[in-house]
């Protein structure tokens, strides 16, 4: 309960971040969607034992995060909240894969551990990339960009309406839940029967609301198609950003930068 409430707090927080005005915010949303997709694909296409080769991608993220003025602590906290999931699915790797892959003096590290950390790293990179996209663009703009990129309009409308009414319905849900909690004293759990009444009640209200919204739409000439007027213009700067961004990402993907640096350094030292 508390967790979800705070999650919705996050929703408005991300919205607030998205209303800032930085060079990243000013980019065309389509450019940002494509760049994020390229980033994610580059990251997941690394082989299962990659760690150091992926690190420059973190560097890219930090750079964008800084330019977009998205607080790193916020992203880090978000990652921490969802990380148990990644740990849960990754932890089997060290148990199953005992293949020694790396030697640091006396310590031999198995492939399982390396791929486990690789999963954690992938997870952090992909999750932060998406968070950054939303925090620098805003959900509505991302949806509109996706329409311009070929997503069916009706699905975009669905996403936008869902997002619009999350706030209303979660409020309603919280009220119903509080009303119950206030009268149930120490009993914290919700029996299946009470639950179905609460949720059923919420569902009935929701259905009524859908009917009223439909009426409101009809009153303003709704004919089955939702029209949204939004003009995006891709500037030369946008294209320049995208081209550079993709070049950098591809270069980082194909050249293991840290390895070269490390080699250079170790050779210098020895």
């Amino acid at each position: 309960m508390a967790k979800i409430e705070s999650a919705f707090f996050d929703l408005s927080y991300l919205d607030a971040l998205a209303r800032r005005n930085t060079c990243i915010h000013r980019l065309d949303p389509r450019i940002k969607v494509i760049a994020t997709a390229v980033f994610v694909i580059c990251v997941v296409s690394f082989h299962k034992y990659a760690i150091s080769a992926m690190l420059p991608f973190a560097l890219v993220l930090v750079l964008v995060m800084g330019l977009a003025e998205v607080p790193a602590s916020y992203v880090a906290r978000k990652l921490l909240i969802v990380s148990p999931f990644a740990v849960m699915v990754g932890i089997f790797n060290p148990l199953l894969d005992h293949q020694p892959l790396m030697q640091l003096g006396p310590i031999v590290i198995s492939g399982g551990w390396i791929s486990f950390f690789s999963i954690l790293l992938r997870f952090s990179l992909t999750v932060s990339a998406v968070l950054l996209l939303i925090a620098s663009t805003g959900f509505n703009a991302v949806c509109m960009a996706m329409v311009k990129l070929g997503m069916p309009r009706i699905f975009a409308v669905q996403l936008l309406m869902l997002y619009r009414y999350i706030f209303v319905l979660v409020d309603e849900g919280i009220r119903i839940h509080q009303a119950r909690a206030l009268r149930s004293f120490q009993k914290r759990g919700l029996s299946m029967k009470t639950f179905s009444h609460l949720v059923g009640q919420l569902l009935l209200r929701t259905l009524d609301r859908a009917q009223r919204i439909h009426l409101a739409m009809l009153c303003r000439g709704f004919d089955g198609t939702i029209r949204i007027q939004r003009v995006f213009t891709i500037t030369k700067g946008d294209l320049f950003f995208l081209a550079n961004c993709c070049t950098v990402l591809f270069l980082l993907r194909y050249f293991d930068l840290p390895l070269y640096i490390g080699r250079l350094l170790t050779r210098l030292l020895s």
Binding site: R164, I226, I228
Partner: peptide, 14 residues
């Protein structure tokens, strides 16, 4: 119930 669009502008333009 009446403001179902993502922004005030979109709603008034609907």
């Amino acid at each position: 119930d009446q403001l179902f669009m993502p922004t005030v502008y979109d709603d008034v333009a609907f």
